[in-house]
């Protein structure tokens, strides 16, 4: 994938939308488990977008893209597990 200005703008708009969604979730009457799950899901999607598009790791060697994605997943799962348990 060759990076384009359009792709960058689309990613930025998605990140803004997910941020507003995540902030809005905090004001809803959701169970703690559901809130943690949904909010951390937005975090995972946002960081994967930053890794692939803004950092341009989508076209990087698998090792580096995988390391960054695994690290993000680890942080989200670790935080989620410690908050819920």
């Amino acid at each position: 994938m060759q990076l384009t200005s359009r792709k960058l703008t689309g990613t930025w708009l998605l990140l803004i939308a997910l941020t507003l969604t995540s902030a809005g979730l905090g004001s809803l009457e959701l169970s703690e488990e559901l809130l943690v799950f949904l909010v951390l899901l937005t975090v995972l999607i946002k960081n994967y977008q930053i890794i692939d598009v803004f950092m341009e790791l989508k076209n990087a060697p698998l090792l580096w893209r995988g390391l960054m994605q695994c690290f993000t997943l680890f942080i989200v799962v670790a935080v989620g597990v410690t908050l819920i348990i």
Partner: peptide, 26 residues
């Protein structure tokens, strides 16, 4: 340019986790 930008995006990634952890999940 890419090196500086990559560091900057990392700073952004960290805040993406910090914001919900500190402000949203109560």
């Amino acid at each position: 340019v890419e090196t500086g930008a990559s560091y900057w995006h990392m700073v952004d990634m960290v805040w993406v986790v910090l914001f919900p952890l500190i402000y949203v999940i109560k």
